[in-house]
Structures are given as C-alpha cells and as structure tokens.
Design a protein around this nucleic acid. Structure first.
Lengths: 228, 228
DNA sequence: TTTACAAGTGTATTTTTTACATTTAGTAAA
DNA sequence: TTTACTAAATGTAAAAAATACACTTGTAAA
C-alpha cells in the first residue's frame, strides 16, 4: 500500500517516427499493422512501455528490434493523450523521432516484410493520431536541422557536398543555392575533406567528406544556428 | 477483456512550471509539499492524470485550481520516466510550462499559503527531478520568447516599453539596447500605443501600450523570429 | 529657476544573407 | 586527338539585418 491512487493507472505507449534518406528524398518508415483493430493499415512503429524501463529505453528497444542498430539518434517530442485516440483502451503515447542511415539499415529491413519506406510527400493514411504525430515530428526535424547538424546521421559515412545539400533540401523542403550552401557548411568547420572522390555521379568525380565528430564536440555550443 | 496487457499500466502525473513576472525579475511558483515523502520541501505544482481527461485537461485543471484563471498560456514540453524518479511508486510525469500574470493571480495566491514565487536565479532545491524540469522549461521559454510574442501574457494588460524590455531582459538573461529594442518591437507591429501614460516610474511619464490581438492573429505566421 | 531623472528618439557601421555565372576536370564519342 | 558533354568547383557584389551609440525632452521637486 502506498500514498497514490491505483485507480488512475494507464497504458503508456511509445511511437517512433523513423526518418531516412535515400539520396533523393526524405523517407519515413511505416509498418502494416498485423492485428485488430485497424489490421492491415499503415502505422508508426511502436510498442508499450514496460515496467522496468524508461521511455528512452522503450524507444531504443523498439528501434533496436527493428534495425539491429543501437546508437540511433532519437529525440522525444510529444505525449498524446486524447481519450479515444486508441479505440481499444485508454492509451497515452509518447512519440520519438529517430534518424537512421537507410544503407546500414536495409539489410535488416528486408527481414521485416511489413515495414516500408515512404516519401514524406506520399505518406499514406495512418492509424489513430499517427498522421498528426508525423506532422509534428517533421516540423521538429526541420527546426532541429536548421540549428544542429543532426542530419549527418542520415547520410553514409562518406558523402559528397551534393548529397548533403540534397538532404538539407529535402528536409527543409526548399531549393538552396549551391555556392551559398557550400560556404555556409564550410564556415561551420565540422567536416573533413577526404582525398577521395565519388565517381558515380559525374565523370569529374566529387570529393567525399566525413563528419568531424571531435571538432564538433569541441565546440562550446551544440547549436549552430545556421539558417538555410 | 481487450487486446492489451494490463500488467504494464503506470501512474501518469502532470507537473507545471509556472512563470510570472513582477516588473523586475522572472519568477517561478513553487509549493511546499504537505505530505510524505519529502514533506515540507519545495515542489512544482502537479497532480495525477485522471481517467476521463487529457494531459492538457489535467494541466488546465491544476492551473485553474491554483489560480482561478482559465485561459492561461500553457505548453507541454517533456515526459519524464526515470524508474525511481518518484520513490513511492513508478510514476511518469509530463511537464507543462505556463505563463501567468502575477497581478491577476495574486488575489488567489494569498489563499494558498503553501505557494511562493521565487526569482529564477534563486530557485531552491526541489523534490524529485523537478529542478531538471525547471531547467528544461526555462530553456524552452527562452527559445519561444525569441520567436513568438508569448511573453506579453506575463505583463499587465497595459504596459510600458520599459516594462516589456525588462521582461525580455529577464527571460533572455541579458541586457538589451533601449533604442534597438523599441525599433524591433515596433517593427513587429502588434502593439497599440495608448494616449495614456504611466506616471509611477518617472516625472515625465511613459506611454502605455496594449497587445493588439487582432493584428497578431491576422499575420500569416505565428512566429516572428525576432532575435533579441 | 535650477536640478534631477527617466523617457524618447535616429543614424552610421558592421555583419550576415542573398543573388548570381564561369571555369575546370574527366570521360566518351566522333 | 580533338570535340562534346556533364557535373563539380569556386568568389564577389548588393541587399538586408543587426548592432553600436548620445543627446533632447518633459515634469516634479528642491
């Protein structure tokens, strides 16, 4: 026996908006729900919070189960509590968005046949309030991206300026000027230019870069506030 | 009987960080906890989520009980889930920050003898993870204030430019230039200058302004992105 | 009438952001 | 071997935004 009232306990779920990037478009991952209600409809990847874990643990567990990867960038952003959001039973859901590297991930994706990437612009109708979650996650991702270099997690380890620019363009959903973009990124001073070229996109080839984690960590502030 | 597992139900609380402004400093409201554990220690104002309400409802209920006021600016910002954050029982807490007008509020505050305003800089040790909540709320308030005119809710209906500037200075925790501040605020074009002066602070008196809700609503964007 | 005090106000400078076009390197085809 | 093609690489001038900065005004009290 304790001081609190057990009457008001509720189920707590975690839903993850998983963003990826295929060098062309920003993508989001959904799964086909395989139980009632709404069986067969598209849904975010989610699960229930267990007694012995935190919300972050739960989100990590869900992402790990799906991808096999453990160190995924992830951020909690809102908790949804409409009374009837889940018709089965009162369920509160905390949503996280995550950023993953499609290339690394795809091996395991092929095993999970119910999961599918969608272009952000072509997202299907989702169950419950998941479309709302997606919208809010997208806004949050946009904001974060403009002030913090989290986007790099969406690219392969080595990438070209062009890939990076396309990534920013698809996250921010607008065209950017090539020269201004390069200048701005260079002024951030957190990339290492390799002596190595990517030859797939042109005969001339374009230099590859990697993210300089040390330099980034060394900077006082974690936010760059670069406005693109 | 339903599809979900009742095992993992948890208690869900709501904690509110209530900001006020007394024309000098940014203030936060805490209450002295009147039950064990941690009886007698300072705490955020909070309560448990009830079955028939949303988290927003719960936050509004808590704020209403405390202040008697209903249309308080309020925003959910994070859900805390460390296993042992509450020693009595596993409790998840969603925190909201709220912005209230001290003047309006003070009538009812006198009734509630356990509540007390603290300057942000002099916040006491709080129970559980409430200091962390406060820190996060403060960061969020700062960000919001720089891009959105939510701060006006902290002032009396009629206010002087000087009061407004002091408010921004105490939220952002830095000195601002008087002329630049006035110019920037005027460029937002959401204030109405009254033909009326506040005579309390100088012999000359300073003009009073009110917030122009209509003009504000009419603007396309809700965010001004004024950087101060 | 002088003093004291905060209110009110504008401009020049610096910094940041934006707009914009040509040359270069390499490959493949003639 | 020359030519044509494609994407990569690069810098500067103009515009906009942010900052720094000081004197005049109005009123009440001495």
């Amino acid at each position: 026996m304790n001081a609190y009232n057990p009457q008001d306990k509720v189920l707590l779920a975690v839903d993850c908006i998983i963003f990826g990037f295929d060098n062309e478009d920003l993508k989001v991952l959904f799964v086909k729900r395989d139980f009632e209600p709404e069986k067969g409809n598209w849904s975010l990847i989610g699960g229930f919070l267990k007694k012995e874990e935190t919300l972050n643990d739960a989100a990590n567990r869900i992402l790990h189960n799906l991808t096999g990867v453990n160190d995924i960038y992830m951020e909690q952003f809102y908790t949804w509590s409409n009374i009837d959001r889940d018709p089965v039973e009162r369920t509160i859901s905390t949503s996280y968005y995550a950023i993953i590297n499609i290339q690394e991930y795809n091996e395991k994706l092929t095993e999970h046949h119910n999961a599918k990437w969608f272009s952000l612009t072509e997202a299907p109708h989702l169950i419950f309030d998941h479309n709302e979650m997606l919208a809010k996650a997208t806004r949050r991702l946009r904001r974060r991206t403009s002030i913090s270099p989290i986007g790099f997690g969406l690219l392969p380890e080595k990438f070209t300026m062009r890939q990076l620019q396309k990534l920013y363009e698809s996250i921010l959903d607008k065209k950017l000027d090539k020269r201004n973009f390069v200048n701005k990124i260079k002024s951030m001073d957190i990339l290492i230019k390799l002596n190595e070229k990517d030859m797939t996109s042109s005969t001339k080839g374009s230099y590859l870069y990697i993210f300089d984690q040390e330099k980034y960590d060394a900077k006082q502030t974690n936010d760059f506030y670069l406005k693109l």
